[in-house]
């Protein structure tokens, strides 16, 4: 108990450090003093403008998106009792992406409000579909089947997205950067709009963490313990949709944070979700902040979208899990 609290505090300090690092380093590196001054005694110098308008929004977005995706991944893994679950493998990210592409195609505009609302809607539809798929049919789907169903879903959604984009070159041009999952050029305005939705999701995630422990035991067991399984499951889906949908709305589909961080959190904090979820939240933020810093330096001339970085680091992790899983069964 005590060590876990200390662990959380250390994690929090690490996240804070990464956050400051993310503000200070980049093409122009900014000394720590100027960062402090930018908030307390703003004088309009170039460095301070960079901090306030470019670096700070970016770091904040990385912070909340990483945290949300990690919690969404944790909840999904507990809900489906599947170690390979995550918003990226189950089509939720692409559901949001497709909804945005359709909304842009139909309305012809690219306002932030449109982005956010259609992303939420798309994520919700995809999330509900996965939920239904995992509870319909002859008994529960096995983990492997669920993963394959998710990847089929991804293929379907991605193909439809592609089809719409082929018909409309203009939206392809505006949306391809967003589709890669990037944190650059985010405005504070979008951030503030999505933040309340995310906050509800985050608080919800923390509140249901206690029930996740029981859900993970299995349906019959949870019912025997007097839980309203259906309501809890529905609540879990709602939390996942809010978190993943709003993340996609600000940052585009960023993969594998949800998948990888849940495993890390469980490895550190054990299987008690009251601890796993806070740990996952911290670790998710930390990982995405670091990935974003890394994305600025891999290729010197240009920035790589952070979604590409996380997928490239995360996919080998999935392969590793696949190999380990085989040994266990």
């Amino acid at each position: 108990m005590k060590t876990k609290i200390i662990g959380l505090i250390i994690l929090f300090i690490l996240v804070l450090l990464a956050f400051l690092l993310s503000i200070s380093i980049g093409v122009v590196s900014i000394p720590f003093r100027s960062i402090v001054d930018a908030f307390w005694s703003f004088d309009g110098s170039r460095e301070q403008l960079i901090v306030r308008d470019v670096r700070l929004p970016r770091a904040l977005v990385a912070l909340v998106v990483g945290c949300s995706l990690a919690i969404a991944g944790c909840v999904m893994q507990a809900l489906s009792r599947n170690d390979l679950a995550g918003p990226e493998l189950f089509g939720i990210n692409y559901g949001a992406a497709l909804a945005i592409v359709i909304a842009m195609f139909v309305s012809g505009s690219a306002s932030t409000y449109l982005f956010a609302s259609s992303a939420l809607l798309g994520a919700a539809l995809a999330g509900i579909f996965v939920f239904l798929l995992s509870s319909l049919g002859r008994g529960a789907l096995t983990p492997i089947k669920l993963v394959i169903a998710g990847s089929t879903m991804n293929l379907l959604l991605a193909s439809i997205t592609q089809g719409i984009l082929i018909l409309n070159e203009q939206s392809l041009d505006t949306i391809r950067f967003w589709l890669a999952g990037s944190l650059t050029g985010r405005e504070m305005e979008t951030f503030w709009k999505v933040l309340p939705i995310m906050a509800i999701g985050l608080i919800g995630g923390l509140l249901i963490s206690k029930h996740l422990n029981i859900i993970r035991l299995g349906e019959e067991m949870a019912q025997g313990l007097g839980q309203h399984v259906f309501y809890i499951k529905a609540l879990c889906v709602a939390v996942v949709v809010l978190l993943a949908g709003s993340s996609v709305a600000i940052a585009g589909p960023i993969g594998f944070i949800g998948l990888a961080v849940s495993h890390l959190a469980r490895a550190i904090a054990g299987h008690d979700y009251r601890w796993t979820i806070p740990y996952a939240a911290g670790a998710g933020s930390l990982l995405l902040l670091l990935a974003d810093i890394g994305a600025r330096f891999i290729l010197p001339e240009q920035e790589i979208p952070v979604g590409v970085v996380t997928a490239f680091l995360g996919a080998p992790f999935l392969i590793y899990l696949a190999q380990r899983k085989e040994r266990a069964t």
Partner: peptide
């Protein structure tokens, strides 16, 4: 099963590379 899962992993990596290249290319080529 291992082959299927690793296939999905490889697909994800290839997919991320593709999205990256699509962001750097000229729109006609894309």
């Amino acid at each position: 099963t291992r082959m299927l899962l690793i296939g999905i992993g490889i697909t994800a990596m290839a997919g991320s590379l593709i999205t990256y290249w699509l962001t750097v290319g000229g729109i006609f080529r894309v």
